[in-house]
């Protein structure tokens, strides 16, 4: 068991998400930073969908009752095992009785704690991803976040080889302004040329209004020719421009349909990067070719989701 001594402000059980139910309004959930999540499972030779804990902001403290292998990826929260500092983006052997501690996020916002063969959580609608708003997933299947005293089961494992993520795949979370790549789509053509050029030449600030549903940004206002559209399906990373002209990027727990005009979508990689931004971070939007983005995401998906044949 992993006994949670301190869950911190927001720690959630996540797998890759809940797919196939958006037609009845159930959102996908899943890791806010899928890149970091998939690497953590890969470091342990896990199946890509094996459940992990997504730790937002930090202050997570827990004790292991059985030996196992773990990996931590994502934000730097000065992790330690038995108060001895360890590095993120690497796997570690854990003895029964070891204590893990993650402090405050120094850079980035969310860390992933993966364990050999995943935490055992009962799926609901084929996923254990926690979506609080839909009351789905997590340890109790009802959307509750993890809390102090919770016990998560896992398989006991003996020592295995240590893996580390190559340096070039570890994102630099301190980059400012962070370039975010935008695929022009949806109502892109409904934004006048001068509005498009404002959008792509300004620097935006991540506002304090950020959650797993969406990231509200502040900066130069953008105006669409139409204030609203006929409600339609919302893809991951869609950039909504509501009447106040301030962009909202829709993230993993987004609503399934909506009627605000959208200037395009962030690439999957940029969604992962934005998910690690704290309020006050600066970002810029850069146009990206759709098929270039597709090729890059496809290569990453094949590499990270088809590992070891699982």
């Amino acid at each position: 068991m992993l006994r949670i001594l301190s869950s911190g402000p927001l720690s959630l059980v996540q797998d890759l998400g809940r797919y196939g139910y958006q037609n009845v309004g159930v959102t996908t959930g899943g890791p806010m930073d899928e890149h970091a999540f998939l690497w953590a499972n890969r470091l342990l030779n896990n199946a890509p969908n094996d459940p992990q804990i997504e730790i937002t902001l930090g202050q997570f403290h827990a004790e292991f009752t059985k030996s196992t292998m773990i990996a931590i990826t994502g934000a730097d929260m000065s992790p330690s095992i038995n108060d001895i500092p360890i590095k993120a983006w690497q796997s570690y052997f854990i003895n029964a009785g070891d204590k893990i501690k993650l402090n405050n996020a120094q850079t980035g916002l969310r860390s992933y704690l993966a364990i050999k063969d995943g935490f055992k959580a009962q799926p609901i609608l084929n996923s254990c991803s926690t979506v609080t708003r839909d009351r789905l997933g997590g340890l109790k299947k009802n959307g509750d976040k993890l809390s102090d005293g919770d016990l998560l089961d896992y398989s006991e494992t003996s020592h295995q080889i240590i893996n580390r993520v190559p340096e070039k795949f570890i994102p630099n979370y301190t980059q400012q302004p962070l370039p975010l790549f935008v695929i022009p789509s949806y109502q892109y053509e409904l934004f006048p040329k001068d509005q498009q050029s404002i959008f792509f030449s300004s620097t935006y600030t991540v506002s304090p209004q950020i959650d797993r549903m969406g990231y509200r940004l502040s900066g130069e206002k953008i105006k669409c020719r139409q204030p609203g559209i006929i409600s339609e399906g919302i893809a991951l990373g869609a950039i909504q421009i509501p009447a106040d002209g301030q962009p909202i990027v829709l993230m993993r727990d987004r609503q399934t349909i909506g009627g605000y005009p959208k200037i395009g979508c962030l690439t999957n990689e940029s969604v992962c990067r934005l998910a690690q931004c704290q309020p006050g971070s600066k970002v810029r939007f850069i146009l990206k070719d759709l098929f270039q983005a597709e090729a890059e995401y496809s290569v990453e998906s094949i590499f990270l989701k088809l590992n070891n044949g699982k």
């Binding site: 958006q22 037609n23 996908t28 006929i230 399906g233 399934t256 349909i257 496809s298």
Partner: peptide, 16 residues
């Protein structure tokens, strides 16, 4: 995944 709405269908595909 499929999301039907008033006048459209959004379709997510398996890139693999």
């Amino acid at each position: 995944d499929v999301i039907p709405s008033y006048t459209s269908i959004l379709i997510t595909i398996d890139l693999i």
